[in-house]
Design a protein around this nucleic acid. Structure first.
Length: 584
RNA sequence: GGCGCAUUAGUGUAGCUGGUCAACACGCGGCCCUCUCAAGGCCGAGAUCACGGGUUCGAGCCCCGUAUGCGCUACCA
């Protein structure tokens, strides 16, 4: 990188002759003063060699997600990660994870693991950056690292050194109170607040003053010497929003904080250049910063990436109405919430995909079995308004997924969930996975296309009755009142006697009918309704008795299917315990 | 305060360069199926496209203004 940006060519907004103009020797001395260990810094040339241009096919997108390890993983972060990753994959590009931990005060222990785990759990493992190994440990992969900003200080400093040498960055000693006063004064004057133009006091410092203050150990930050003109605009193409036009940046923003860490803006410039990011897809709160970012890239003579801004998921519907999704008050802002509350991860992903491109739904209907990765995400199909989280819709998607995935896969994820949230159930499942599968599979492939599982919360009611230990005790069974104990026992005796596991499940109802007529119940509900006095009841009442005895509940899936899973022995046992209980 | 982004039925969205464009999904209601519960099938109620002006033969779709929400205006990202 050569120094062709000499001071004279800078289009500075304030042609204020009072500003200190340094000679290039002074600038060099200043840079060395700011970075006493400058000799240890890599040169820009070395960095360019260390991080060569990526060798990727035409049109490949290199993009990234850059969460801060400040606590939980936000659902909006997952959303942005999903979109970025899909786009990278679709173009044979690269998706990487960069941990943006430049704010040492805010970084939280364990948050790094939370991020990596969330991406791994949701199938969004990055190509580069921190990943979770199959053994469950963490490591960093990729040739453009390190991928944590806190470990890249020397790179930022190398670039900062260059900017100081070229007069585009300068030290500023203003303290918090001073900045506060400045802001108040500007507010009193009813002008824009901020460090710009004549308000940028650091621009007026003489070399000797700077030297003295630095040598005295005074704290300082490094600010950009902004080159934008506020009354003029800059435009760029946002792939979601089209052409965006904003005033040029004339604020001397902080680029290096007093602790030596870069701010987001500077880290973005340096990292996304050397990491070869081609597309920045991020939340829309960054729109206002694009003029600054463009200026930063120009100041280094680097090719800027393409910026596009997505509206993050912001609100949630509640009984009260709408409000902003808040980390503190809305548990569903946290990615963990969904799994905890029984939503399969794939459902969350597909729901997010649906928010991103609403035609995903149509695609899914047309391709019920295809993996979601076959769907093509398109930026220009993304909505501009912030979508509202809708758990009811999520559940509907979840139900579709749980009813369409392969039974073995269903067993897997159910078991994985139960192992954490329903431990006793999981234990039983593991004893005989095949049995659990048959129980889970009930009615899934029938013509009726029953979708019994909405979320994992439906797992227990669906599965537990297949295990004796979860059944209510015999005297707690909710038998209907309208069938006498005597009839109940007769019914169950006959079931025990006549049930055969050779019967096809459809046969079961025929058995119920014949038992009904043998015991004076009407085999057809219609007949009973015509002449109630002729019967003790109807086949439905008989079925209810059997249902309670078999399933411990007045509600169950098809009895023929239930009994065929239970098997002859269990059917007999369950009849016996009731009969025994009554006669006792 | 300044600047920016957004605003289509309860919710999420679709509506291409202005002329069946008010559609789809979830939810809600009813009916059907039916031995229970779900699921499924069918039907239906919900939006004068935030509001007010324009431009036009004609506007969710273009322009201006207003309102509301959100964002930025930090040595947070």
């Amino acid at each position: 990188m050569d120094n062709n940006n000499s001071l004279e060519t800078l289009p500075n907004s304030s042609t204020d002759s009072q500003q200190t103009i340094f000679s290039s020797n002074e600038l060099r001395a200043l840079a060395e003063l700011v970075f006493p260990h400058w000799q240890e810094l890599p040169s820009l040339k070395e960095l360019d060699e260390r991080y060569p241009k990526r060798n990727l096919p035409q049109g490949a997108m290199v993009n990234r997600v850059g969460p801060s390890p400040t606590g939980m993983m936000h659902i909006g972060g997952l959303y942005v990660a999903l979109v970025n990753r899909r786009l990278a994959k679709q173009t044979s590009g690269v998706f990487f994870l960069r941990i943006e931990d430049t704010d040492t005060k805010r970084t939280v222990e364990g948050a790094y693991e939370t991020i990596v785990n969330a991406l791994a759990d949701y199938g969004l493992t990055p190509d580069e950056g921190a990943i979770r190994t199959p053994e469950g440990t963490f490591k960093e992969v990729g040739n453009y690292g390190p991928y944590s900003q806190s470990a890249r200080k020397h790179i930022y400093h190398a670039c900062a050194f260059d900017l100081i040498c070229r007069g585009l960055m300068y030290p500023c000693f203003m303290k918090e109170e001073e900045l506060q006063h400045l802001r108040e004064e500007q507010q009193g004057l009813e002008i824009r607040t901020g460090v710009y133009g004549k308000w940028a006091k650091g621009r007026y410092l003489s070399y000797s003053e700077i030297e003295n203050r630095i040598k005295a150990g005074e704290h300082f930050v490094l600010r950009l010497r902004a080159t934008g003109i506020y009354s003029e605009t800059i435009s760029w193409e946002d792939q979601i929003r089209g052409t965006l036009t904003l005033p040029q940046n004339d604020i001397d923003v902080v680029l290096i904080k007093s602790d030596g860490m870069p701010t987001y803006h500077f880290a973005h410039l340096v990292d996304d250049h050397f990491m070869g990011t081609t597309h920045i897809i991020r939340a829309d709160e960054w729109i206002s910063s694009v003029p600054l970012h463009l200026q930063l890239f120009a100041s280094m003579n680097w090719q800027p990436p393409q910026y596009t801004h997505v509206s993050a998921i912001q609100k949630l519907s509640e009984t009260g109405g709408k409000r902003k999704m808040s980390k503190r008050h809305d548990p569903e802002a946290n990615v963990e919430y969904y799994w905890k509350n029984g939503f399969p991860r794939q459902a969350v992903i597909e729901y997010l995909l649906n928010l991103a491109n609403s035609d995903f739904e149509d695609w899914r209907r047309a391709n019920p079995k295809a993996p979601y990765t076959e769907f093509n995400v398109a930026l220009d199909k993304m909505g501009q308004a912030g979508p509202l989280a809708d758990l009811v819709k999520l559940e509907s998607i979840s139900r579709d997924i749980l009813s369409s995935i392969d039974i073995n896969e269903l067993y897997q994820i159910c078991y994985e969930w139960a192992a954490v949230h329903e431990k006793d159930l999981a234990q039983e499942m593991a004893k005989d996975p095949d049995y659990a599968c048959r129980a889970l599979d009930i009615e899934r492939n029938s013509e009726k296309g029953a979708k019994r599982l909405g979320t994992f919360n439906d797992l227990r009611p669906q599965l537990a009755p297949f295990y004796d230990q979860f059944l209510p005790s015999a005297n707690e069974l909710p038998f209907p009142e309208n069938v006498t104990v005597e009839d109940r026992n007769k019914i169950l005796s006959l079931i025990k006697e006549r049930y055969s596991d050779q019967d096809p499940p459809e046969q079961f109802f025929e058995r119920l009918k014949s038992i009904s007529s043998d015991l004076g119940f009407s085999p057809a509900v219609k007949d009973y309704k015509k002449n109630p006095s002729l019967y003790k009841g109807h086949v439905g009442d008989v079925a209810a008795v059997v249902r309670v005895a078999m399933f411990g509940s007045t509600r169950s899936p098809d009895l023929g299917l239930v009994t065929s899973v239970l098997g002859k022995q269990t059917v007999a046992n369950r009849c016996n315990r009731v009969i025994a209980n009554q006669s006792a």
